[in-house]
């Protein structure tokens, strides 16, 4: 025990850490462990059967492709938004800046029904596309729209502070040595914000993988086409197939962990670059 904790004159360590560990175990660790134990009742072959089921694979594919598309959209436009918010001033900028966090604050169900209404073939936005025979709501495109909304703040909020920290002197130096504005962006600014951009992309992607509430209203939920993995879990639960639902949940949890590790690695990398 002497090695476990460094000496301190402050009181309350045992109480604070004890309560933290107890609460963490009761609320998070024990409930999460039930996933492993329940999946274990399936056995390895049972688990493999669920994991390689055509419908499960299709739902994972839909989830991944749509999440990737939405995160890419947000990486491109999020970078533009962050740039505009950091570098330019225009009337109403503070309001716009505050509004970027709306997807964090607006409950997903509200986003879901609103986007479904807007992008339906007779909706405000959907009817412009319907004229060209493009359906958005009730197709995989609808999922991309919902996930773009959900992931919008991530890239903006990770790039913004890093972009604000890029030193004007470096840009001036590059420019005085004859670099064009585009060169300065490409060779000086972009390399310093690149890790933050990637982190924002990964955060938006990770959030999208598990998203449920905003998608189910707009997706149409057709098996093999627009059915996402979380919805398949709910469908299996409704058929009392607890083991099957749990197996899919475990797959998703493992994917989320891998992403979490990747994001931590990215953040560590970008911090190191900042220090240098």
């Amino acid at each position: 025990m002497a090695q476990f904790k460094a000496h301190s004159v402050l009181p309350g360590f045992n109480l604070a850490l004890g309560f933290t560990l107890l609460y963490l175990s009761l609320i998070v660790l024990i409930p999460l462990s039930s996933l492993f134990f329940k999946t274990a009742t399936l056995g390895w072959s049972g688990f493999w059967e669920v994991a390689t089921d055509e419908r499960v694979l299709a739902s994972l594919r839909v989830t991944f492709v749509a999440s990737f598309a939405a995160a890419t959209l947000n990486a491109i436009f999020g970078l533009v938004v962050a740039w505009v918010l950091v570098r330019y001033s225009f009337p109403g900028k503070r309001l716009v800046d505050a509004l970027v966090d709306l997807p964090f604050a607006l409950p997903t169900a509200v986003a879901g029904i609103t986007l479904a209404m807007l992008y339906a073939p007779n909706g405000w936005i959907g009817h412009y596309f319907a004229e060209h025979d493009i359906k958005i709501a009730y197709t995989p495109l609808g999922i991309v729209v919902a996930l773009t909304f959900i992931g919008l703040p991530f890239v903006v909020r990770t790039v913004q502070p890093v972009l604000a920290d890029v030193e004007a002197e470096v840009e001036e130096a590059a420019a005085s040595l004859g670099a064009s504005r585009w060169d300065v962006f490409r060779r000086v600014i972009f390399p310093s914000i690149y890790p933050a951009l990637l982190t924002g992309f990964a955060l938006a992607f990770a959030r999208s993988i598990g998203e449920y509430g905003s998608i189910i209203f707009i997706a149409g939920n057709m098996p093999f086409i627009s059915e996402i993995a979380p919805l398949l879990i709910v469908a299996k639960l409704e058929q009392y197939d607890y083991a099957g639902a749990t197996a899919i949940a475990l797959i998703m949890l493992i994917i989320s962990f891998a992403l979490l590790l990747a994001i931590n690695g990215l953040q560590w990398w970008s911090n190191r670059r900042e220090i240098r």
Binding site: V28, P31, L35, G210, Y212, L253
Partner: peptide, 23 residues
Amino acid sequence: LITLIDLPFAVSPVVSGLIYVLL
């Protein structure tokens, strides 16, 4: 410990509900 505290953010909402049903 810090990583474990962040765990619920990495769990899909549906899975969060599911684990309590399993318990």
